[in-house]
């Protein structure tokens, strides 16, 4: 095991976050605060409680998930895309480091960064609304699994993307809409029946639902189904990553 190698990649990635602290930490915190002001205060004051939870508190898990997913994808995709863009991948590919170790370095750093941002947002939320966490262990598990899955997903995008536009297109056109339509800001039961059915095809619903359950013990679907869904998605990402390294897709001639 090339431990110094994993450490080098990890530190290198964390350094980048430190250099761009505004982009990596301050900006998600600001945008989350904006969501609170608009959704929580302005609109939320006109919405009655959902399943006994005030609207402002209700959206906290969804907001954290929104940030966690988009940031995981952004960090991890950029982390591997940037060396490809500058040409510095030659060094990683010629180093005595296994594919697994490369993934641990890059994805590990992306997970760490997005977890930090997620927890900072949780703390920020506490300034705006009352938060109650019923199952801390489950909450952390959902945070970790989601961060890991989406970081891996981001890593794949970073390898697949040929340019900056492609790098942005998946988070913008797929991840963000799925999160918005996945019950982050509402309970699925509030939708007409047809749209409820459509929503069940959205994988994000299961993550947000499970995560919200760990806070308030209210959920749209059972926790086990949530866990099963995220596990499935994680397995898919792991398989694709394994395939990429086996075939050298877009990395080696």
């Amino acid at each position: 095991m090339n431990i110094p190698g994993i450490k080098a990649i990890f530190t290198h990635e964390m350094d980048r976050a430190r250099r761009t602290i505004f982009q990596s930490l301050v900006s998600p915190v600001i945008s989350t605060s904006l969501y609170f002001i608009v959704f929580g205060s302005a609109i939320g004051s006109r919405i009655t409680e959902i399943d006994g939870v005030s609207y402002g508190s209700f959206i906290v898990p969804g907001l954290i998930m929104l940030t966690l997913m988009t940031q995981s994808v952004t960090y991890a995709s950029f982390g591997i895309f940037f060396p490809r863009f500058t040409g510095t991948t030659y060094e990683i590919l010629s180093a005595p480091i296994s594919h697994l170790e490369i993934v641990i370095g890059y994805v590990g750093a992306a997970v760490t960064k997005s977890l930090i941002v997620g927890l900072v947002i949780l703390a920020t939320s506490g300034l705006f609304v009352d938060i109650y966490i019923a199952h801390v262990g489950w909450m952390l598990l959902f945070l970790l699994l989601t961060a890991f899955t989406f970081s891996l997903f981001g890593f794949l995008i970073g390898i697949w993307a040929e340019n900056f536009e492609r790098l942005q297109i998946i988070p913008l056109l797929i991840v963000t809409p799925l999160v918005f339509l996945g019950g982050s800001f509402y309970s699925v039961s509030m939708l007409p029946e047809f749209w409820q059915k459509v929503t069940y095809f959205n994988p994000v619903l299961y993550l947000v639902s499970g995560f919200r359950w760990s806070f308030y013990e209210i959920s749209d679907v059972s926790v086990m189904i949530s866990l099963g869904m995220i596990g499935t998605f994680l397995l898919i990402c792991i398989s694709i990553t394994w395939w990429i390294f086996k075939t050298g897709y877009k990395l080696k001639e």
């Binding site: 090339n2 110094p4 190698g5 450490k7 080098a8 990649i9 530190t11 290198h12 350094d15 980048r16 250099r19 940037f82 060396p83 500058t86 040409g87 510095t88 030659y90 060094e91 990683i92 010629s94 180093a95 005595p96 480091i97």
Partner: peptide, 30 residues
């Protein structure tokens, strides 16, 4: 093996010391 490629691929925003240190770690050295 150490390799000096033909082009000059670099991470523009890193410092000189950090990038050399990074390479050393990548190749498994403390």
């Amino acid at each position: 093996i150490g390799l000096v490629p033909q082009e000059l691929p670099i991470e523009p925003f890193e410092s000189v010391f950090k990038t050399v240190n990074f390479s050393r770690g990548l190749f498994g050295k403390t």
